[in-house]
């Protein structure tokens, strides 16, 4: 049941998806992998929307060079663990929800325990090896995986529904090379809010999800495009006759 205070807090969005939708948000648990550029807007918008339980995992400490984009963290947080900074801000944004912030590295060994019984996994990582792990666990647990990634003024996003859509490895079978990527904060702002929008739509059963297509944002040209994406029938992760055994280490 929603409290009087919650009914008032969420009044303007209850106009969109009703008390039922709001109750669904309240009873949901979303796992956010990363509290950086993408994780910040995703976590903030899911918190203020009233997603009842949010788990954020990050192993890093706030650095000055993070502050151009990682809007969960303030100048005064430099040197603090991102989890400590994140939990404080999110709880201030919305004291009526539960925030779990876990300071650890996501590995093949701990990922299932970290994700637990979450209703969805948000990709706010900055590397493909961990994205591939998240993708596999989402498939195994049959929960949606909300992918997003950015570089510079460019971003991409798609929603992966196990058994229905292509998985991350169908779309990107091989990772691009590692780099210190250039980025301006507005880009994860755009892509993170696309991901958070998808989560809210999924949980409240509204609209058409970003499935079977890759959304591509070009901030420099101010254009967005879509690329149709298809399942790879011989995908090593979700193709026919394949297992979902996780690799032994985090690196593939």
């Amino acid at each position: 049941m929603l409290s009087e205070r919650e009914l008032e807090r969420y009044k303007r969005q209850i106009l969109l998806f009703g008390n039922d939708g709001q109750e669904r948000l309240k009873s949901s648990h979303i796992f956010i992998a990363g509290a950086g550029g993408l994780g910040s807007p995703v976590a903030i918008y899911l918190a203020v929307a009233g997603v009842g339980t949010i788990t954020v995992v990050d192993m890093d400490t706030v650095e000055q060079s993070n502050l151009n984009r990682q809007i969960l963290h303030y100048d005064r947080d430099i040197g603090k663990k991102k989890t400590v900074s994140a939990i404080a801000k999110l709880q201030e944004y919305n004291p009526d929800i539960i925030i779990n912030a876990i300071d650890t590295t996501i590995t093949a060994d701990n990922i299932r325990r970290l994700v637990g019984q979450a209703d969805g996994i948000v990709d706010a990582m900055d590397n493909y090896p961990v994205r591939y792990l998240l993708n596999r666990v989402a498939l195994e647990m049959k929960v949606p995986f909300f992918h997003g990634a950015i570089r510079g003024f460019y971003g991409q996003a798609t929603t992966i529904i196990p058994g229905k859509t292509p998985c991350l490895e169908c779309i990107f079978p091989r990772a691009p090379p590692k780099e210190v990527f250039p980025v301006v904060g507005v880009t994860p702002g755009v892509i993170g809010t696309v991901q958070a929008t998808e989560v809210i739509k999924y949980l409240t059963k509204q609209g058409e999800l970003l499935v079977g297509r890759l959304f591509i944002w070009d901030g420099l040209a101010a254009t967005s495009e879509e690329i149709a994406i298809e399942k790879n029938p011989v995908c090593p992760v979700c193709g026919s006759g394949t297992g979902t055994e996780l690799p032994a280490g985090m690196m593939r």
């Binding site: 990363g34 950086g36 550029g37 993408l38 994780g39 990709d123 706010a124 990582m125 900055d126 590397n127 493909y128 997003g148 990634a149 950015i150 570089r151 460019y154 971003g155 991409q156 779309i171 990107f172 990772a175 691009p176 590692k178 780099e179 990527f181 980025v183 994860p188 591509i216 690329i227």
Partner: peptide, 10 residues
Amino acid sequence: IAVFPPVAGG
């Protein structure tokens, strides 16, 4: 023909 690099940052 579309030629596309996946982006990796987060």
